[in-house]
């Protein structure tokens, strides 16, 4: 760094000396910065990084019936990959994640478009956003459970469809299937997609769109070349939120699948319930790996620090 900087300064005498001075200037301000960031760093290292490392470490421990011992072994890992159930859960998790991600994006984008671009009155904009957030003050577990009487065989959806004569027999596959899990997750998480996108859209300078229209660009073309690219960082943030939450999910699938749809999260919960910590740790590491790949891929699409 320092070397490069000096080269840029092109060797002017004064500047080179000053460059050195700049490096060690203002020790007081640096001490204050250090004091300010230290508590946060310590907290995150102790309560996030160390636990995650511990999880990786424990995944190599030996699992006894009700205990784990710190004798290193690959047994838990072998068990994971050789079991159809567990590997299947990995694939199912990825599948459901992709479906929910797509669903939240396609359902959420038009709403974000309306809130961010079409509502010019800041007060109304805030009111609509707050309307979207209010459900979060009711436990999401209760909200998830409400889908049962909606989707069940004698649920609201079937009753309505039968009343209007669209179907004669109730549809049974609505509840306790992957479908109900996807519906439940989409409903809970779609707001996390809408929020960031609406935020980015509301920052677009209207004169930009005006100018494009004056140049004769069609609505679709304006959307494709101006609006969508500028909203992309919001899409990325939203996608990260949704991905993180869906990949680690277990409550929705537990509530709406009748224990038929097992995700990686569900396996972790079951394993911990039967004190199989080492095995739970293996699944945890797998989940972390999937997460890391997904987030890294999404971050390639936009530099989030710049967007703040």
């Amino acid at each position: 760094m320092e070397e490069a900087r000096r080269r840029i300064q092109g060797g002017s005498g004064v500047s080179a000396v000053a460059g050195v001075a700049a490096e060690k200037k203002d020790p007081r301000a640096r001490r204050i910065t250090a004091l300010l960031v230290a508590p946060g760093i310590i907290w995150m290292v102790l309560f996030l990084v160390v636990p995650m490392l511990m999880m990786v470490y424990v995944s190599f421990w030996t699992q006894k019936t009700f205990t784990i011992e710190p004798t290193l072994t690959l047994n838990s890992w072998i068990a994971f990959f050789s079991s159809e159930t567990y590997f299947g859960a990995l694939l199912r998790t990825i599948r459901i994640w992709l479906i929910v991600l797509a669903a939240t994006f396609f359902l959420g984008y038009p709403t974000a478009l309306f809130i961010g671009l079409f509502i010019k009155n800041k007060t109304i904009q805030t009111i609509v956003l707050v309307l979207c957030v209010v459900p979060f003050w009711t436990s999401f577990l209760i909200r998830v459970l409400a889908w049962r009487p909606m989707l069940g065989k004698e649920g609201a959806v079937n009753i309505v469809l039968q009343k209007i004569g669209l179907i004669s027999q109730p549809i049974e596959v609505l509840l306790f299937t992957e479908f109900s899990v996807v519906i439940g997750m989409t409903q809970i998480y779609v707001v996390f997609m809408v929020g960031p996108i609406a935020f980015m859209l509301s920052r677009i300078d209207p004169s930009l769109i005006e100018a494009a229209r004056d140049l004769g660009a069609s609505t679709w073309r304006i959307f494709r070349t101006i609006i969508f690219p500028l909203s992309l960082p919001g899409v990325v943030v939203g996608a990260i939120f949704v991905s993180v939450m869906v990949l680690g999910e277990f409550a929705t699938s537990a509530a709406l699948s009748g224990r038929k749809v097992n995700l990686l999260g569900n396996i972790i919960v079951t394993q911990v319930g039967s004190l199989k910590w080492a095995f739970a740790a293996v699944v945890g590491v797998m989940l972390t790996a999937v997460m890391a790949i997904v987030v890294a891929a999404l971050l390639r699409l936009a530099d989030l620090r710049k967007e703040l």
């Binding site: 636990p51 993180v244 989940l287």
Partner: peptide
């Protein structure tokens, strides 16, 4: 940059993993 991502990591890591990790550390 490091501090930024370290902090943001807290909202990126799925909750079930944080819970699991902290439980493991506490148990040990």
């Amino acid at each position: 940059g490091f501090v930024f991502y370290l902090v943001v990591l807290g909202m990126i890591v799925p909750g079930v993993l944080v819970g699991l990790g902290i439980a493991l550390v506490a148990n040990n």
